[in-house]
Design a protein around this nucleic acid. Structure first.
Lengths: 136, 136
DNA sequence: CTGTATCCTTAGGGATACTG
DNA sequence: CAGTATCCCTAAGGATACAG
């Protein structure tokens, strides 16, 4: 295991994501876009966590600035605006899946993984085991 | 791709991790424990991000309550306290690696992945590609 | 419906002094 | 060295009213 500072120096990748996602709301919007097929302002408001309108506006704007989310300009769905993940945003899928897997393993209240996650989990298990062993 | 609410309901796994890691500091402590071999209070203070002592105390306490970090009671290193990851904490490794991989890909300032990450990246590439395709 | 704007409250967090 | 304890300030966030 690499324990010198080559992985995380002043430009630390962990710190980098915290600058964008280090709050209680941003990742929930990514979740809604990625797993719940939500696209419009009102749909995000309906989520269980009950985000406020001003916070939602702010986070959508930040996500757009970071090029993780983009707003559709030409909308065929009745001149309503809609949001979607960019490629950079879709690249968060592995992160989201690993977070989900970790919660599924360690939180009793979290739902058991569905077939999709289960299929993913089986495939990654062997890979992770050897890496984790290096931490000891 | 599963887009109904079976993956994330009121007990959403994404929301679950946000309750613990949804701030600017907590994940940096995990990083220091996991990748930098840091163990003691003073070592965490030395990191580039310059966490304040009261914040560090608070976050270490929270991480201990969540059983992600444990304090060594019997210390052979001169009666000094030290912190280490529990198994639950070590299980965060895949999450940390995916975060690092995402930053490495999308942040110009982030250092290129080292051999360890590179070896990991190669193995996971095929797996991720098919999953990501399902998002389209 | 999709936001903006405003007000107000609370939590997060920096600085610093101090203690075992 | 390893924290505690305060003070104070700012940012985050909830509620609500309102506008295009």
């Amino acid at each position: 295991m690499n324990r010198d500072s080559s992985l995380c120096r002043s430009n630390c990748p962990i710190n980098f994501v915290l600058e964008t996602f280090g709050d209680k709301w941003t990742l929930l919007i990514v979740r809604d876009l990625m797993f719940k097929g939500k696209r419009r302002f009102g749909e995000f408001l309906e989520s269980d966590e009950k985000i406020a309108t001003n916070i939602l506006t702010d986070r959508l704007k930040r996500l757009e600035e970071h090029e993780i989310v983009e707003r559709s300009t030409s909308s065929e769905t009745g001149a309503r605006r809609s949001y979607q993940l960019t490629e950079k945003g879709k690249d968060l899928l592995p992160v989201m899946l690993e977070i989900t897997a970790w919660s599924a393993k360690h939180d009793a209240k979290t739902n058991a993984p569905d077939e999709f996650l289960g299929q993913f989990a089986a495939a990654r298990e062997t890979l992770i085991a050897s890496l984790k062993a290096a931490l000891d």
